[in-house]
Simulated scan of single mutants.
Amino acid sequence: MIGRFISLEGGEGAGKSTQVRALAMALEARGIVVVITREPGGSDGAEAIRALLMQGDVARWSPQAETLLFAAARADHVERTIRPALDAGRWVLTDRYVDSTRAYQGIGGVDDDAILALHRFGSGGLMPDRTFLLGLPVEQGVARATARDGAAADRFAARGEGFHLAVAQGFERIARDDRDRVRLIDASRPAAHVTADIMAGLADLLP
């Protein structure tokens, strides 16, 4: 079986983690071996960097420093988890990947070409076979995330609505610029409908 690499992207509260799990179940029902992972994280080294990135004051790191830390975490994630799974013929489902860096740190002034250059250097430029962008009105996503996390919100979720609106616009730009890879999914509907749309968007990749 050919390994496939699928990423789910979107703003806070879009339901990425829920859909990764649901998608894994749907694929496993078809006999596909699935590896679920996340960013930042997904390997021992990347999880250590995740703690640095997600905890602490909102202003703990500049966008440039965040970009470098995300690139380092991703390099380890790709080397230790993603590539070995793909080489073994497994499907890798990740909750966030490089497009999140492009959206979140890009609005902080980090050039998209610089982010992609770091990605080529650290992770060999590995891109997903398919990316699903879960679209949700910003206010709805923020409300979901607040209800979920409360006072335990991470450095990114804790930022203001203006920040999250800019992130959403960054994701939309990525989707417009890479229509072959990125599929936009309406995440405001019931979870089962979202999963069905994702599976439909994978039809050409399924064995």
Rank of each mutant, 00 (worst) to 15 (best):
Ala85Val: 12
His77Thr: 15
Ala200His: 11
Asp87Lys: 15
Leu23Ala: 12
Arg74Gly: 08
Arg183Ile: 09
Ile107Thr: 13
Leu93Cys: 10
Ala48Ser: 10
Gly42Val: 02
Ala46Thr: 03
Asp204Phe: 10
Ile36Thr: 14
Glu79Tyr: 15
Arg80Thr: 12
Thr18Val: 14
Glu172Thr: 07
Ala168Phe: 02
Arg50Ile: 01
Gly201His: 08
Gly3Gln: 08
Leu202Met: 02
Pro207Ser: 06
Pro137Trp: 09
Arg130Phe: 05
Gln64Ile: 09
Thr101Arg: 05
Leu165Ala: 14
Gln64Leu: 11
Glu39Ala: 08
Met1Thr: 15
Asp57Glu: 13
Arg96Trp: 06
Ala166Met: 01
Gly109Pro: 05
Leu206His: 10
Gly106Arg: 07
Pro190Cys: 11
Arg60Val: 10
Val167Gly: 00
Ala175Gln: 01
Phe171Cys: 00
Asp57Ser: 13
Ile198Arg: 01
Thr67Asn: 02
Ala152Arg: 04
Leu206Lys: 06
Ile107Ala: 10
Arg130Lys: 07
Tyr97Phe: 08
Ala191Val: 15
Val194Glu: 04
Pro190Trp: 13
Asp204Thr: 15
Asp197Gln: 09
Gly45Asp: 08
Gly135Asp: 15
Thr131Pro: 05
Gly11Arg: 06
Ser17Met: 12
Gly162Asp: 07
Trp61His: 15
Gly125Phe: 02
Ile36Phe: 09
Ala59Lys: 10
Thr37Asp: 09
Asp149Glu: 05
Gly162Pro: 01
His119Cys: 08
Asp154Tyr: 00
Gly109Val: 11
Ala158Cys: 00
Thr131Cys: 05
Asp180Cys: 02
Gly45Ile: 12
Phe156Glu: 00
Gln140Pro: 03
Val110Gln: 01
Pro128His: 02
Ala51Cys: 06
Asp44Asn: 11
